[in-house]
Nucleic acid binder design. Sequence first.
DNA 1: TGCTTTGCCTATGCATTCTC
DNA 2: GAGAATGCATAGGCAAAGCA
Length: 360
Amino acid sequence: MKKLEATFPVDGQLLMVLPRAAASLKNPDLQLPILRSDADGYYLEVRVEADPRETSELTLIRRVPLENLSAEEWEDLKAEYAKLDWSVCAHKGISKGLEKIQDRKTQRLFAALLTFLNPRQVSIVLYLYKLAAQQGNGAIVTFRSNDLLEILGYTRTKDGGFASKLRSQLNCDLVSLHRTELVLAQSFRKGTQTMGAKVMIKSVLRIKDYEIDHVPRDFDLSKAADYTYELADAYTISLEFFDGPARTGDSVLFANTIDITQKLGSNAKSDYKTKLLIYLASRMKWDILQEGQYVVISKQYLFKNLDLLGSNSSRNNQIFWRTVEELKQEGYILGAQELPGKNKIVSVQFQINSAKLKCH
DNA sequence: TGCTTTGCCTATGCATTCTC
DNA sequence: GAGAATGCATAGGCAAAGCA
């Protein structure tokens, strides 16, 4: 008998697209970022190509609309873009690849697009869904910045605040989640059911309002994200993927005990635990659970979606099983084992603990 | 003999502290 | 607040060692 835990719902459609939307530069399905102009304006975008052998590997574009750009600025941006060597970004790191760009706004713009929905941002999104359930205002969520930084496990400075770098990072994350649009180029299918409209353009969240404590400061959200180290003290956002008033129940329930603390001294992209948790939740929406608790995923797709794309397969395996163990420790999965398949294609069968992770 | 694992080593990318 | 310096955990390439 499984005991019921307190849970909160995360939108099912969002979870279905999340691993795809988060594809990194190393992901073989990711095309190089391009600058594109059309009748509606200018965009910086990357395209993630579908993998025809697996329905969950859908086509998707993530893009940042470039607002209020003069023709001259557009030309400057194109010139900066031409100087970029993407292989440096892929092999030596994004910050290394972008260090030649002088303009901070351009640098942050490219970095935001390339690191979009990294595990830290995903953790923030999960936390906001948890708050949405607590606050009961539908998709609208209000929170204080310092509370969020605390929940993320960062240490406070002597005066009780947080370092400017961290504050800046949080504002950049929030603005990135706000202005990066996801374009689903086609409807996607779950079983025989067609999900979503023909073309859907949505951000993960939209910032509706923000507050500055005490002294009225001149705070500009975009300027802060593009140039400075500022962060507003409180935000009101709306979750754009939200199982609306009709409550169709298209969601996955996550345990309230979810841990989103960031590991000290480690970097966000090596947070495999969050990546695996989200990928499992995503595949629970795409596939039908066998016997109500098993999900079977080929190792190839697991490794791709965990960004385990290094050339040392033994090392990749090591990291993968270590991560499985972490999720087991936290109780999201009860077990996992390899299943040999046809033509050397190995799959892993996960036994999901429905007390902590459950399709609704 | 060919594949996998392990050790060594360097680089990356964060958080934190320090300085202005 | 801004930015440089520092420290830490980890990734990941390379090659030797282990294994069937």
